[in-house]
C-alpha cells in the first residue's frame, strides 16, 4: 500500500521546457504543449499520467503537469460565475464578476448579460428592468470572452439568475416563483429573473 509520503517521494517534478514524452504515446494535458511530435512541460509542478477513459476514441493516456500553487481565478467559457449587477439598460445589463465557481477573483472582471441571454423562452420579449436591478447578485454562465469590454454572460438556465436582491424597502427579498421575489417587510412583490434554488 502506497502511503502519501511514499507517493510524494516518488513524485516527478517538472519545469518548463522539459521533454515529457512522444506525442504518439501521450495526449498533451494541462501544463504541457506539443512541438514537433514531442510533449514538453510548460509549467512548474508535479507530473501526472491520467489513463484514458474506457471507451474513449483516443486510448492514449494524457500527461499533465499540475501546479502546487493556486493562481487567481479567471473566467473561462462554461464557468458558472457569481456577479453583482452594476447597470441595467434597455437591451443589456452589465455586472461585476466577483467569484468564478467557488473561488473569489483577485481582480474585478466585467460581464454583460444581453437581452437574448436572460432566459430561454420568449427571448425577444424580455424586459431588462423586470429581470435585474442594480445591486442584485446573480449566478450566470460565461458564454464567451465577449467583446473588448466585457465577458458575455447568460442566465438562460433554470438554476441561473438572481440569487439575492434587496427590495426598495431595504430588506433581502425571498423568491416566490421564477419571475417574482417578495419583500418580507412590506409584502410587495418585485419582478426578477430568479434562479431556482435547490
Amino acid at each position: 500500500m502506497k502511503t502519501k509520503a511514499m507517493e510524494d517521494a516518488a513524485a516527478i517534478y517538472r519545469t518548463p521546457g522539459e521533454l515529457l514524452g512522444s506525442a504518439f504515446d501521450y495526449i498533451a494535458g494541462t501544463g504541457t504543449y506539443t512541438f514537433q511530435n514531442k510533449v514538453y512541460a510548460s509549467l512548474v509542478g508535479v507530473q501526472h499520467i491520467v489513463e484514458a477513459r474506457s471507451g474513449a476514441a483516443d486510448l492514449r493516456p494524457s500527461i499533465e503537469v499540475r501546479r502546487e500553487k493556486q493562481r487567481g481565478a479567471i473566467p473561462q467559457p462554461g464557468d458558472i460565475v457569481t456577479a453583482k449587477i452594476a447597470k441595467v439598460q434597455a437591451r443589456m445589463a452589465s455586472a461585476d464578476i466577483v467569484c468564478v465557481g467557488q473561488r473569489a477573483v483577485k481582480e474585478k472582471f466585467t460581464g454583460t448579460v444581453r437581452q437574448q441571454d436572460v432566459r430561454a423562452t420568449e427571448i425577444d420579449k424580455v424586459d431588462m428592468h423586470a429581470s435585474f436591478r442594480p445591486g442584485d447578485i446573480i449566478r450566470a454562465e460565461v458564454l464567451s470572452l465577449g467583446d473588448a469590454r466585457a465577458y458575455y454572460l447568460s442566465t438562460a438556465k433554470n438554476e441561473l439568475g438572481v440569487v439575492s436582491a434587496m427590495s426598495v424597502a431595504g430588506a433581502t427579498m425571498v423568491p416566490i416563483s421564477w419571475q417574482e421575489m417578495q419583500c418580507p417587510l412590506t409584502n410587495q412583490t418585485e419582478p426578477r429573473k430568479v434562479a431556482k434554488v435547490e
Binding site: 518548463p16 521546457g17 504543449y33 514538453y40 510548460s42 509549467l43 512548474v44 501546479r67
Partner: peptide, 11 residues
C-alpha cells in the same frame, strides 16, 4: 514567471 504559473515553452 514560472512561480506565477505562466505557461512557457522553456525557461
Amino acid at each position: 514567471l514560472a512561480d506565477a504559473g505562466i505557461p512557457m515553452r522553456d525557461l
